[in-house]
Write a protein that binds this DNA or RNA. Structure first.
Lengths: 234, 234
DNA sequence: CTGTATCCATGGCGATACTG
DNA sequence: CAGTATCGCCATGGATACAG
């Protein structure tokens, strides 16, 4: 039997959602990706065959062929998973602090930054922020803001760079996830920002943190409680 | 690699939660079960070996040995999964209407009813409601309310029965899940209630529906939309 | 760009029996 | 009551190559 043999709605829901990768594909679609290769980029360790299979979930994803192109969109049912995915993100950010070496990936990090960075605070004129990782390849990245759009390059686009962030990939990843603040990292000299005097101070505001990073981490008190049973009668 | 190779908090959360059965065990613990065999009863198709393994998840479950007995409690981290489990229940009840033959189980149904039924509306004196399934074994069950406690028997406890519900197991299951109302089932003669005149009318109130059954089912309009992509720009 | 096809290894999990 | 122990399968999914 592949199911759980239960009428419980949680059981029925998980029969659809507990397969490996499924919820990550949904996360990508919720974030706005619609193309096959766009999805691959968001879930790079998933094989294309498997992605294709996951995209067949009728009732969750609807495929639409437009001439030579194809796009995938969430159905209403899957759209209503948004609060659950957000809840999982908040929970994961709060309680799964530890990242393994295999979780760090400059492509994914920059790709996610490009997608989520809010350009409101950026200057109107073209502005380039470079990022340099001392411990990852590719090590050089350029975020190019122009006319309300943010482009990402892994080659020098040739424009003047307003500021350069130099750090290790895990540091930048933790900052982006919200597990560490720009200020703390700067103070601890885990990170440097060089460039125009006025830009340097604004980089933390420009880049910010992931939208889902705003969940308070557990306090020391709570972290201790994690190792103990929850109090009864909550 | 067993993980997802991503720093995304959803990915990290799912590395813990997407294993088969895990969230159902958590659901049982959230519902108040603490004993190994109590958990087995709530997840009967899971092998004891696997249950034992799932109960080892440090950070989610805390084991406490008290002499010859053992009990399991959720940690604070797992307790904070409650809104997510509730959300999944609501989503599953709303969008996964169809149940397979293998999802029906009189033990699970009555066990869940005994656990969730609210005794507020019941009489103070001892009251017995019998349930008889025409298509499932065991077919006879007795719910015995006495002094604020509800007992469940699969043998005749010998007390006077106030009312007897006779129906097929899928009908009662759907009513309990909220996919069908008592009134509709009675009108369609999918279900009969016999017994004392005053008790008969109150049985639907006494038994009610599962606490998580209160999510409105999708309208016909919504069900149609499920088959179409969600509107853009929601 | 959007997938299919094929092969193969692995380990998760089911089934069953047994123990203190 | 509260688990271990053991065995073996087969489906899941990883890897790679290829195609319309």
């Amino acid at each position: 039997m592949s199911g759980h043999g239960q009428f419980c709605p949680v059981a029925k829901a998980m029969e659809l959602l507990d397969e490996r990768w499924t919820l990550l594909v949904i996360r990508e679609l919720l974030a706005g990706s619609t193309r096959f290769n766009e999805l691959r980029r968001g879930v790079p360790h998933m094989s294309p065959a498997l992605l294709s299979k996951r995209l067949e979930h009728a009732g969750l994803v609807r495929k639409r062929v437009e001439g030579t192109r194809t796009d995938y969109r969430l159905t209403q049912a899957a759209e209503e998973l948004r609060p659950i995915v957000d809840g999982l993100a908040a929970w994961g950010g709060r309680w799964i602090g530890e990242l393994g070496q295999e979780d760090f990936d400059p492509h994914l990090l920059l790709w996610d930054m490009r997608r989520q960075i809010d350009l409101e605070a950026w200057p109107r004129r073209r502005t380039v922020v470079a990022m340099r990782f001392t411990d990852a390849q590719p090590s050089q990245w350029w975020l190019v803001c122009r006319e309300g759009d943010l482009d990402l390059c892994d080659f020098d686009p040739g424009f003047a760079v307003a500021a350069t962030v130099t750090t290790r990939l895990p540091v930048m990843t933790r900052i982006w996830r919200g597990g560490r603040s720009w200020l703390h990292a700067l103070r601890a000299e885990e990170l440097r920002i060089d460039g125009d005097a006025d830009a340097v101070g604004r980089v933390p505001v420009w880049l910010g943190q992931a939208g889902r990073a705003s969940v308070p981490r557990p306090s020391e008190r709570e972290l201790a409680a994690r190792r103990e049973p929850a109090l009864a009668g909550t």
